[in-house]
Amino acid sequence: MDPTTCYELILEYIESHDYSEARIYAAILHNWLAHRGFYPEGCVPERVDEVLEHLLKPACLPGAMRTRFRSITCYDCDNGSQIGSLKEAIDDGWTAIIGDDDLKVTSHLGTCPLCRMRDSQELLT
């Protein structure tokens, strides 16, 4: 796939908050660049790298997978009551997820898609 087209798709998916699709294309572009491919036309390489890094960072720390899921709460806005599983949270675009059996109100904490969208908008500007 042409890297310029791939990057444009990534930006469109970020804009529509479809992070699972954005991550797929980010992995494709990252692989292309890792194998000495050229950067998308008209784009600042450092900016492309920032967007890819933001999308490809792990959704959760390894310990989060070992913690039995009860609920998840966003660090910034307390969102998460509608999420029924860790898989659902990851698929919905939650990131920076940690799990701790000693937490009293929730079993997991993370950054919800809405707060992530706000951070992504700041990243794109």
Rank of each mutant, 00 (worst) to 15 (best):
G99Q: 09
G93Y: 03
L86M: 11
V105I: 14
I83W: 03
L114I: 08
A64F: 11
L109W: 07
M65K: 15
A89C: 09
G110M: 03
G80H: 08
I98A: 08
T67Y: 07
A96F: 00
I98G: 07
D102Q: 13
T73F: 05
K57H: 13
R118E: 06
L86A: 08
K104W: 05
K57M: 10
I90A: 11
S81C: 14
S71E: 06
P62K: 04
K57R: 15
D91G: 09
G99D: 06
P58M: 01
G110H: 11
G80L: 10
L61E: 03
T95F: 02
R118L: 03
K87Y: 07
G99E: 09
M117C: 07
C115E: 01
R118H: 04
D91V: 14
A59W: 05
R68Q: 08
T95N: 01
L56A: 07
P62G: 04
T67W: 06
I97H: 01
T95S: 04
K104V: 12
G99T: 09
L86T: 14
M65Q: 12
G93N: 11
M117L: 10
C115R: 01
M65H: 15
L114R: 09
R70K: 15
D91T: 14
G63P: 06
I90M: 10
G93D: 05
G110N: 07
E88I: 13
A89M: 11
Y75P: 00
I83S: 03
T106C: 14
G110Q: 02
A59P: 10
D78C: 10
A89W: 03
S107Q: 08
Y75G: 00
I98C: 11
T67R: 02
D76M: 01
C115H: 01
Y75L: 03
P62I: 05
D78R: 14
I98M: 04
I90L: 13
T95I: 15
S85L: 14
H108W: 04
I97W: 01
T95Q: 01
V105Y: 09
G80K: 04
K57C: 05
